[in-house]
Design a protein around this nucleic acid. Structure first.
Lengths: 201, 201
DNA sequence: GTATATTGTGAACGTACATTCACAATGGAG
DNA sequence: CTCCATTGTGAATGTACGTTCACAATATAC
């Protein structure tokens, strides 16, 4: 053992990444301090130098997830000016994000996270709400630009948008990767554009 | 204590219902044999007279869930002949089912279930696949009857259908019931009909 | 280089939980 | 009623885990 001493911020980052990775590969039940410590070559008790406890680690993981989701929205907004194109890109980004880091749905949708620290549920709600708000914003732009039917509720559309990803990711996961995510995403996108497009008005 | 002696089938039913209820109210982490036993007025060790262990209880819960889902499909098929009407009813049934028994998404989407017995993932995949197949069947009928655009993939539509419910249920749950499920379901349904309807062809 | 705060270690403790087992109560078959 | 399989009980065991603590090693300020 006898690991080198590193700054707390470095360790905190390592711990969050290790935790995220653990959840992604082995599920939330495997997220224990011992496993996290092992991953970064530390002894369990060392973790407590950098986090007050397991709950605080989960909070940090949630913050990291929030950052990744927001990063995706920012990214597509820089890449494309058209709202529909932004949404399309966001869809594929989102799916890629989940494929690469399965921890996100596991953390967001697992109920064990909520039974931990009080206010955890509100925190998760905040993350999802913020993301939906950003999507909603894009949709409103699309309505203003005549790309999306202005007669429909942007919020409802944003939730439907989330619904494009969720079952797709679920099926991909429980089928052990057999399920063709990209193909489904493309088909779902076509259906989505039919649902919200301004063409049928 | 000193509970009356009951037949194993009765106890098994009680245990499954208790487990389902526990997961619904307190999450998967609270699903332990002690809590289940307490709910039906037994001592923990008594549970092992009726189930080999915790994993077997989870399997039984999964079977029960499969039954509830299939019951919903059977129900709407008896109630309505029109495929779109069947789907509409199924949507609202599904949402009601989840509202009344939050255990379903918790069990299906929680990753802890998979880390248990090997083959658990396949079992869950089977449940979801079967449900999707039934939905797909309804969609094919609709395409044959000219109610649903025959140019789109029934499977993709069935997954989109699942996507109508999933985020809605999630938001309802993490918002502590603040989120208006029925309203969202209605809006989502309208968007769904626009997406799959034969009108735009 | 020395002092001090920070970080890492190993052992220990408490808790929650699944599971087992010897024994007691009970209910139905004969 | 009697016998025996079934069901319930209480205690005990083993394990996994979160957390704490006294102590050691190391970095950093001076």
């Amino acid at each position: 053992m006898s690991e080198k001493k590193l700054h707390t911020r470095v360790r905190q980052e390592q711990i969050v990444l290790a935790a995220l990775n653990l959840v992604a590969t082995q599920g939330l039940r495997s997220l224990n301090v011992a496993a996290v410590a092992r991953r970064i070559g530390l002894v369990p008790s060392a973790i407590y130098r950098h986090f007050k406890g397991k709950e605080e680690i989960i909070d940090a993981v949630l913050d990291h997830i929030r950052g990744m989701l927001q990063g995706n929205v920012d990214g597509v907004c820089e890449e494309a000016p058209d709202s529909l194109e932004r949404l399309r890109r966001l869809l594929f980004r989102h799916i890629r994000l989940i494929r690469e880091n399965l921890a996100i749905p596991r953390v967001i949708f697992s109920e064990d996270v909520y039974s931990g620290r009080s206010g955890r549920k509100e925190r998760v709600y905040g993350i999802v709400s913020d993301y939906l708000s950003r999507v909603e914003e894009i949709i409103r732009q699309g309505q203003g630009a005549g790309r999306i039917d202005p007669g429909i509720d942007p919020k409802a559309v944003s939730i439907l948008f989330l619904g494009l990803v969720q079952p797709t990711a679920l099926l991909w996961h429980i089928s052990n990767g057999r399920f063709d995510v990209t193909r489904q995403a493309e088909k779902a996108w076509k259906l989505f554009t039919r649902a919200v497009g301004a063409c049928c008005e």
